[in-house]
Simulated scan of single mutants.
Amino acid sequence: MSEAEDLERHRHDWDWLIGSWNVRHHRLKERLVGSTEWDEFDGACTMVPTLNGFGNMDDNWLDLPAGAYRAMAVRVFNPETRLWSIWWFDERSNSLEPPVRGGFHDGVGRFEADDTFNGRAIRVYFQWSEITANSARWEQAFSADGGATWEVNWWMEFTRA
């Protein structure tokens, strides 16, 4: 595959997510403490492409039991590294979290970064899988041991609205 063909392929990495989605959230009540109790709640997501396909953003509504809030994801492709960067931020805080970086391979998108959680250094990943025209699965996991073990602490079921 030529460099131009590879670049064109990446322009369409997120086409499947364009539009409006119903989201069912499953969030671990406590993270990195061995909890097995989950909160389940509904939400919504609307994604729009930007930057001629080399960027996109989505507006999210999360109807948590403790109180609903809006959040946003912004994704940008770097043609030099061939990696996507994803930033997540929401109205509960005034800070922008470090981006996770990665890409799609064999129909699965995996994006990782170093981060902190409750003052503790962690590794985090976002993963998109089970992608179809009308559904997808997203999950987030933390590792407190440099990626040797992972705790999935949030997963979402997306269905086309």
Rank of each mutant, 00 (worst) to 15 (best):
D106K: 02
V152G: 10
G146I: 06
R75C: 06
P65M: 12
A66I: 15
N56R: 11
I122Q: 03
R160A: 15
V152T: 15
S93T: 13
H12T: 10
R123C: 11
W61F: 11
D115H: 09
H26C: 07
E5Y: 12
F117M: 09
R11V: 03
Y125A: 00
L83I: 01
R92G: 04
E91S: 08
R101A: 10
A161N: 15
G34C: 09
F117I: 00
E37W: 00
D90V: 03
Q140A: 08
I18N: 01
P79M: 05
Q127H: 02
W38R: 00
T159E: 15
G19L: 03
D13T: 03
L96Y: 00
I122G: 03
S135A: 15
F54K: 06
W61P: 01
M1Y: 12
E130C: 10
D106E: 14
T81N: 07
S95P: 00
D58R: 06
S93N: 07
M57A: 11
N52A: 13
T132C: 13
A141M: 12
S95E: 14
H12D: 04
R75A: 05
G119D: 12
W16L: 00
G55S: 06
D106P: 00
W38P: 06
W128T: 07
V76D: 07
I131Q: 09
E130S: 14
F54V: 04
A44G: 13
V76K: 06
S20N: 09
E151I: 09
N60D: 12
R137V: 15
A4M: 11
A121M: 10
T50D: 14
W138T: 02
W21Y: 04
P49F: 02
G34E: 00
S85L: 05
G34K: 01
S129L: 09
E112Y: 07
A144R: 05
G119P: 04
I86F: 00
G119S: 07
Q127F: 01
C45H: 03
T116E: 13
N56T: 07
G67Y: 12
R75I: 08
V33A: 05
G67P: 12
A44N: 08
W138E: 02
L7N: 08
T36A: 05
R9G: 08
V108C: 07
G147S: 13
L64S: 11
G107R: 07
S95D: 13
W21G: 01
I122R: 00
D39M: 03
T81S: 15
A113H: 05
G53S: 10
A66H: 12
W138M: 05
E80Y: 10
R9L: 09
N153G: 10
